[in-house]
Amino acid sequence: MTAQGTSEVEAPAEGVTLTPGAAAKVKSLLDQEGRDDLQLRIAVQPGGCSGLRYQLFFDERNLDGDDTHEFDGVAVVVDRMSVPYLHGAKIDFVDTIEKQGFTIDNPTATGSCACGDSFH
């Protein structure tokens, strides 16, 4: 886990890693919303052409069995059903001429569709 106030990224034993760039973008989005009670929830849901899709959204809820870690002041929450699918996943934010948005590098995904929206 990342110690508060540092920008070093270390993956928790189970779960996801949020890069400093992604954490900064999340903070910026939360500032725009004017909310400090929200956390970033990452979930895996059935769907897409490869069988499973990622969902990233802000959530104020805490569910039984949630796996929560903090990265540079951003709380990241994964529900217990999604944790096995996201073990070792790294979430980053890309802002280039070709692409803008959050990316997920997931070592547990064995394949993905051509559009990149789903995996298996």
Rank of each mutant, 00 (worst) to 15 (best):
T2I: 11
T2H: 13
A3H: 14
A3D: 14
Q4F: 11
Q4P: 01
G5L: 02
T6A: 04
T6M: 09
E8C: 13
E8H: 13
V9E: 10
V9N: 10
E10M: 12
A11K: 08
A11T: 12
A13E: 12
A13S: 11
E14D: 13
G15L: 00
G15V: 02
V16I: 06
T17R: 12
T17H: 02
T17G: 10
T17D: 07
L18D: 06
L18Q: 08
T19F: 02
T19K: 03
P20E: 13
G21I: 06
A22P: 09
A22G: 10
A22T: 00
A22Y: 07
A23Y: 06
K27S: 14
S28I: 14
S28H: 15
S28V: 14
E33A: 15
E33M: 15
E33F: 09
E33C: 00
E33S: 13
G34P: 01
R35C: 03
D36N: 14
D36L: 04
D37P: 07
L38T: 02
Q39T: 11
L40S: 04
A43L: 09
A43Q: 10
V44W: 06
P46C: 06
G48N: 05
C49A: 13
S50C: 13
G51F: 05
G51C: 08
G51R: 08
L52V: 14
L52M: 15
R53Q: 14
R53E: 14
Y54R: 01
Q55V: 14
L56N: 01
L56F: 05
F57H: 12
R61T: 12
R61W: 12
N62Y: 11
N62S: 13
N62I: 15
N62K: 12
N62H: 10
L63D: 08
L63R: 05
L63F: 07
D64L: 03
G65P: 06
D67C: 15
T68V: 13
H69I: 03
D72G: 07
D72V: 07
G73M: 04
V76G: 06
V76S: 00
V78R: 03
S82A: 03
P84E: 09
P84Y: 08
H87V: 12
G88I: 00
A89V: 02
A89L: 05
A89T: 05
K90R: 13
D92P: 01
D92E: 07
D92R: 05
D92Q: 03
D92V: 05
F93L: 10
F93Q: 08
D95W: 11
D95H: 11
T96H: 06
I97P: 09
I97N: 14
Q100L: 13
F102G: 04
T103N: 09
I104V: 06
D105H: 11
N106P: 06
A109Y: 02
A109S: 07
A109I: 05
T110P: 06
C113I: 05
C113S: 01
A114G: 15
C115H: 12
S118C: 11
F119W: 04
